[in-house]
């Protein structure tokens, strides 16, 4: 494998990582502040993608669609928080898992009821189609590059939001001591709704941008959800920094595993067997990574608290 190809694959891994970060940061925020484990987070991803595809189809503009998708995901998140989720904060993880599992069923089938069974059309906007040549001669799709840039911007934005703003201060306070911040007179239920809607908006953003590259269909959120959970568990639940590092780690390991393992097995196996075995091992790789990390660091790499 040439160096440029390797660089390109690492970029691909980072791009997958940024998308996972968008999902994982919302999950980890909600867990950190409210102590809630939300399996239905993938549904906001799906909501973002479907609304973006729908609005783009109506208006003809991807950017209007993107805005619509993110706002819709945030709105759906706020409504779900207000009707269902806030009843779960004082329950144990078991109730949270079951209730949000039920929400997945409701969202998936409800979306199918509204939009039908067929996948929807959504494509990369013209201004971001095609590919660019990076320094060093690596040719890379412009849209994917834009996703990486956006991910970096969101990471910085989240950092500033949490460390520099009043809302961020409350979020940090909420992570450290839930009772205390209520006692200080902060409107805790509004804060919770805001944090939950923010998480949903980030998931919606991920769904909207990735929807242009993938198939906008019912159930699209579930594989991503599982990966996002792997990310936050590796990174340490509740830690945004952990989510960022975990996301990039998972993205790069997954991508390079898929590329390198079959080649490795071809050294001592027949080519078609090697592709099969290599692909099989590659699909298990991140779970092996996660189990390995948890075996030695039971609270993840950057545990905020438990």
């Amino acid at each position: 494998m040439t160096l440029t190809l390797l660089i390109e694959q690492v970029l691909n891994g980072i791009q997958l990582g940024t998308m996972l970060f968008l999902m994982a940061s919302g999950l980890t925020l909600v867990f950190g502040v409210m102590g809630l484990i939300n399996l239905a987070h993938g549904s906001f991803y799906m909501t973002g993608a479907f609304v973006t595809a729908w609005v783009t189809g109506l208006t003809g503009s991807f950017w209007v669609g993107l805005l619509g998708g993110v706002l819709a995901a945030a709105a759906v998140g706020a409504v779900v928080e207000w009707t269902v989720i806030r009843r779960l904060y004082h329950r144990d993880h078991l109730d949270q898992v079951l209730a949000t599992f039920a929400l997945i069923l409701i969202f998936s089938e409800g979306t199918r009821w509204i939009f039908g069974s067929s996948p929807l059309w959504l494509n990369v906007p013209d201004s971001l189609s095609g590919s660019v040549t990076l320094p060093g001669g690596v040719e890379y799709p412009l849209y994917r590059l834009a996703i990486i840039v956006m991910g970096v911007a969101i990471a910085i934005g989240l950092y500033l939001l949490i460390s520099r703003t009043r809302l961020g201060m409350r979020i940090r306070a909420g992570e450290n001591d839930r009772e205390m911040i209520g006692a200080l007179g902060v409107d805790i239920s509004t804060l919770y709704t805001l944090v939950f809607a923010l998480g949903a908006a980030l998931a919606g953003l991920a769904g909207s941008t990735i929807g242009a590259l993938q198939s906008v269909q019912v159930g699209m959120g579930e594989p991503v959800l599982i990966l996002a959970f792997v990310v936050i568990v590796i990174g340490g639940i509740g830690s945004i920094k952990g989510a960022l590092i975990g996301a990039v780690l998972v993205g790069v390991v997954d991508t390079l595993g898929r590329v390198l393992l079959p080649g490795l097995f071809k050294l001592f196996m027949a080519p078609s067997d090697a592709s099969g075995v290599g692909a099989a091992l590659a699909s298990m790789l991140i779970y092996v990574l996660m189990a390995g990390i948890l075996a030695f660091k039971p609270n993840g790499l950057f545990a905020a608290h438990d």
Binding site: M1, T4, N12, T255, A279
Partner: peptide, 19 residues
């Protein structure tokens, strides 16, 4: 090349094709 069943991102395979 064999990809993962249900895989949604093909960046790695596309790079291999280009190369």
């Amino acid at each position: 090349v064999y990809t993962q069943l249900g895989q949604t991102d093909y960046a790695a395979e596309l790079a291999q094709i280009r190369a």
